[in-house]
Design a binder for these strands. Sequence first.
DNA 1: CCTTTTCTTAACTAACTAGTCAACTACTTG
DNA 2: CAAGTAGTTGACTAGTTAGTTAAGAAAAGG
Lengths: 207, 207
Amino acid sequence: MGRTSDADERLKDAALALMWEESYGSVTIDNICSRAEVKKGSFYYFFDSKADLAVAALEKMWETEWKPNLDRIFSSSVEPLTRLTTYLETVYQSQAESKARLGKVLGCPLCSVGCEVSTQEVDVSAKVRLILARKRRYYESVIRDALAEGSIEPCDPAHKADALVGLIQGIVTQARIMNDAEILRDLPSMSLELLRAKQPAAAQPVP
Amino acid sequence: MGRTSDADERLKDAALALMWEESYGSVTIDNICSRAEVKKGSFYYFFDSKADLAVAALEKMWETEWKPNLDRIFSSSVEPLTRLTTYLETVYQSQAESKARLGKVLGCPLCSVGCEVSTQEVDVSAKVRLILARKRRYYESVIRDALAEGSIEPCDPAHKADALVGLIQGIVTQARIMNDAEILRDLPSMSLELLRAKQPAAAQPVP
DNA sequence: CCTTTTCTTAACTAACTAGTCAACTACTTG
DNA sequence: CAAGTAGTTGACTAGTTAGTTAAGAAAAGG
């Protein structure tokens, strides 16, 4: 079937890295091509535009990075609230790692890019919204399971999931803006408070 | 003292509006000039660069819009938690207004721009961080006053203020990404839960 | 080994973008 | 009203950017 190539994959990787480290708008097609070591003609062989590549890059990120990680961490074999705190620990770890490696806290590419392009690039924002909705489901399951288990106060799982997405996204964005990963250390306890976890009560067993 | 002008003010207004409606990176100096009805030569008479103008525009926004509003809403004559919920109501109102007027929820310019440029434009991010810190003080006062009054559970005001900034910023950013102002309706109750307000308990007086 | 398909490349265009400049205009004050 | 000061203008340059194209190279299948 003719000549083979991984140039499209290299382009997706380069695009995601650059959009994450800098921003969607400040990255040019030439930038992406040189980072991927691909000539511009090949870029246009595979993709129609920067927006088209960005959509593909975000989908690849979900499929190869996020989904496998979330499936492992949000496993039903683990207690609901432990899934959440374990996940939030990995969030801190990855941001601390980028701070150590690049000197910059990069935050969440989905939120940064999504916030930046939401009023401009319809296709990219649609993909961002789709992936955010997929991720939200993991939170919602945690909340429902915790409710069933009685480890949090009664609430509406859908609304609480919105709040949780907002809190986590907000603190991670703040970490990027402040270039400080340490504020993420409080994320587990903040989240448990937002969920009104009965944890402190559980630590004091009824006599 | 020679010829007078308000071109610099028009440039600040145009820059803020465009960065808010679109994004920092997608707005060009030519865009800003035509919106402000100012020729490029005049732009460079007043400002050194887009970043320089952005810094001035954000400071003007704080001084003429944000600070007066916050001083009025976070008045010490009002009960602490009422200050907060009143403010959050205005947040919903203003986002619903931009949705009605432009068909787009614009979110918070400070967070959008700050998140976008934080790894790139040092001067702009420094200004964003400064204004965010100023705003944070209003939240911290609310928390301290609510603690003194006994209307929230004991906590560390500094940490809680971080959490509150994160939650509000996160939900507002989500509103922009989702182009949906309605999720902001839950912001007051979410915030009170995060602060562990005793309000629901007060509604059920001890027998 | 030859043909078809898939991908690569360098050179190209046209439009846009940041930034400059010298001549000009309007205002103020002594 | 003279003269300096503050701001305006349009035309300019040089570099960057997205997007095109025609010719060619590498692989696969018959």
